[in-house]
Amino acid sequence: MLDFVQQLVSGVALGCVYGLIALGFVLVYKATEVVNFAQGDLMMLGGFFAFTFIGMLGLNYWIGFAGAVAAMALFGMLAERVVVRPILGYPQFSIIMATIGLGYFLRSVAGMIWGTDDLKIETPFSQGVLRMGSLVLAYDKLSVIAATMILCALLWLFFNKTTLGTAMRASSENMLAAYYMGIPVKRVVSVVWAISAAVATCAGVLLAPITFIHSNVGLVLGLKAFPAAVLGGFGSIPGAVVGGVLIGVIESMAGFYLAEGWKDVAPYIVLLTVLLLKPEGLFGLHVRKKV
């Protein structure tokens, strides 16, 4: 039983990381219908930025964290301006390929700048555990869970309660109509990319004590975060986190109870099953096609 709870908690923590990356996917998708395959790589880059500020320049953890988030928000806007804006309005396939290309580029450049070793950031949560009876919970994992909850709530409020959030939802439904209604669609899209890059950075920094940072971490985790976003139904913020947690729990349970090898495949098997039964994901909207 204790093993089970332990696995559950570490699965949830891992899942929250997937959920955080998936949140980034969902944000961009929700506002622009663009599927950003480079999201994991934005996370990786955010981690490296934080490492530069904290590990190399020796800044305070929180200042470094904030600096990395700000820098990545700017970078997200830049990436949107250069790669995505020229092809907005074209079929999804082109945009997917463009972001795959961007991902390649970011991975290689990060490898060139920061090398290929695993890097580690010293965080206030790196050491120490919370003991509850015989249950041992590491702070770094708890911090991930807490941060995910907070970010998810903030983003949900932002999307549903603020004017800018409403503008984003409007431009996702119909860019042209939103433009006619006086919404500066281009600026909105740019802000969405900044937010999603910032969220990715949070994921990267929180992840640093658990999985370390290396130039391929984005690809590896991005591939897990994708099923998370799809499982929750692309375009749903709570769905992304629920999907992420599900994938994380399934992965850690499969790693613990099933034979070796299941750990890596189980999330995908579950995903395929869910897609078979409910093609629009768990929380996805079922929309009738208009002709």
């Binding site: 580029f105 991975r107 290689s108």
Partner: peptide
């Protein structure tokens, strides 16, 4: 990793 970067740039340029 220079090859990867060139790859990435080529893909993006072709799409754009």
């Amino acid at each position: 990793g220079l090859k990867g970067a060139i790859y990435g740039i080529i893909i993006v340029l072709f799409v754009l």
